[in-house]
Amino acid sequence: MSFHYKCFSHRECEYFPCHKGADPDHFNCLFCYCPLYLLGTECGGKFKLLANGVKDCSDCLFPHRPGNYEKVVEKLQQKIFKPFDKK
């Protein structure tokens, strides 16, 4: 079984790679808009809170590392979907 759905690089995107210092040969664009952002300080990534309270994720490469697909999905399951589990 192929697992190509877990990682791709959109090299023709005008912002690729969108994070300064990121290695374009090891950059996953699947989570272009990070699904963990809404978890606030519990996202597990490297972020800063600006003086105005805005979360700055420009130094975070967690969702863009090719091997982190399962970690992102697991975090979403724990924090978002688990509360709705009827067990």
Rank of each mutant, 00 (worst) to 15 (best):
M1F: 15
S2H: 12
S2C: 13
H4S: 15
H4I: 14
Y5S: 10
K6P: 00
K6L: 09
C7I: 06
F8S: 00
F8E: 09
S9I: 02
C13T: 11
E14A: 13
Y15N: 12
F16A: 04
F16D: 05
F16K: 05
C18F: 13
H19G: 11
G21R: 01
G21H: 10
A22W: 04
A22G: 04
A22K: 02
A22Y: 07
D23H: 00
D23Q: 05
P24I: 05
P24R: 08
P24F: 02
P24G: 09
D25G: 06
D25E: 10
H26I: 09
H26P: 02
H26A: 13
F27V: 02
N28G: 01
N28M: 01
N28L: 00
C29Y: 04
C29M: 04
L30R: 10
F31Q: 05
F31N: 07
F31H: 03
C32M: 11
C32R: 09
C32S: 10
Y33W: 15
Y33S: 14
C34I: 06
C34S: 11
P35R: 05
P35C: 09
P35L: 11
P35D: 15
L36A: 09
Y37D: 10
L38N: 11
L39V: 04
T41P: 09
T41V: 13
E42Y: 07
C43V: 03
C43H: 01
K46W: 04
K48C: 10
L49Q: 12
L49R: 13
A51E: 15
N52V: 03
N52E: 05
N52T: 07
N52Y: 02
N52G: 01
G53K: 01
G53A: 02
G53H: 08
V54Y: 11
V54T: 15
K55C: 12
D56R: 00
C57T: 05
S58I: 03
S58A: 03
S58D: 12
S58V: 04
D59S: 07
D59H: 07
C60H: 02
C60W: 04
C60A: 07
F62E: 08
F62R: 11
P63Y: 01
P63L: 03
P63H: 01
R65I: 08
R65D: 12
R65G: 02
R65E: 14
P66V: 03
Y69V: 00
E70F: 12
V72M: 01
V73I: 12
V73K: 01
V73M: 02
E74M: 05
K75E: 13
K75N: 10
K75H: 10
L76M: 08
L76I: 11
Q77K: 12
Q77F: 07
Q77W: 10
Q77T: 13
Q78A: 09
F81W: 08
F81L: 09
K82Y: 15
K82S: 13
P83E: 11
F84W: 11
F84I: 04
D85V: 03
K86E: 15
K87N: 15
